Simulated assay, not measured.
Amino acid sequence: MNQEIAESAVQLDCAVRNFSVLLSSTPRGARLARLLATEQLRTWGLPLEAPGHVVAELAANAVTHGRVPGRDFRLMLYVVADTLRIEVTDTRCERLPQLRQPTSGSESGRGLVLVDALADRWGVREDRFPRKTVWAELRCSEPEPVPTGSGGEGDPHPKNSGEK
Rank of each mutant, 00 (worst) to 15 (best):
V63L: 07
E39I: 00
G70I: 05
A33R: 06
R92H: 10
A117K: 15
V68P: 09
R92T: 10
Q101T: 09
S106K: 11
R100S: 09
R100F: 14
L46F: 06
E57W: 05
V79Y: 02
D90R: 11
L46W: 03
R85I: 04
R85K: 08
A62L: 05
V63G: 01
R34I: 02
R71Y: 12
D82T: 10
G29F: 04
V54K: 00
R28M: 09
E87P: 03
E107K: 15
P69F: 05
G105R: 15
T43G: 05
C93F: 13
F73H: 04
S108L: 12
L36K: 11
A81W: 02
G45D: 06
Q98E: 15
G105H: 14
D116K: 13
A117Q: 15
R34M: 14
E107N: 10
T64H: 15
Q98K: 13
S104I: 13
L36W: 01
H65A: 11
T83A: 05
L58G: 04
A37G: 13
M76H: 13
L84Q: 09
L77T: 02
N61K: 04
I86R: 05
R42L: 03
L35H: 08
L36V: 01
A81I: 10
V88R: 00
T38E: 12
D90T: 09
Q98S: 15
E39S: 06
E94G: 13
G66T: 03
S108P: 08
L118Y: 04
T91S: 15
L114M: 15
L112A: 07
R34L: 04
P102F: 05
E57Q: 10
S108I: 08
Y78L: 15
R100H: 10
D116W: 11
L77P: 05
W44Y: 07
T83M: 14
P102C: 09
V115H: 01
G70C: 06
E94S: 14
P97I: 07
N61E: 02
V55F: 01
F73T: 00
G45E: 03
T64R: 13
L114N: 09
E57R: 13
R92D: 09
R31W: 06
R42N: 03
V80R: 15
T91R: 14
P102Y: 06
E39N: 07
L41W: 01
R67Y: 05
A50G: 02
S108W: 14
D82G: 07
V80H: 12
Y78I: 08
L35D: 06
A60P: 02
R92Q: 08
E87R: 13
W44C: 00
R71N: 08
G111M: 09
S108F: 12
Q40P: 01
V63D: 08
S108R: 13
R110N: 11
G66D: 07
L96D: 10
T64Y: 09
R85M: 06
V113P: 01
A50S: 02
G52N: 00
S108C: 08
V63T: 13
I86D: 01
L84A: 01
V68T: 12
A30Q: 02
G111K: 11
E107W: 09
R95M: 11
P47W: 01
T89H: 06
T83N: 03
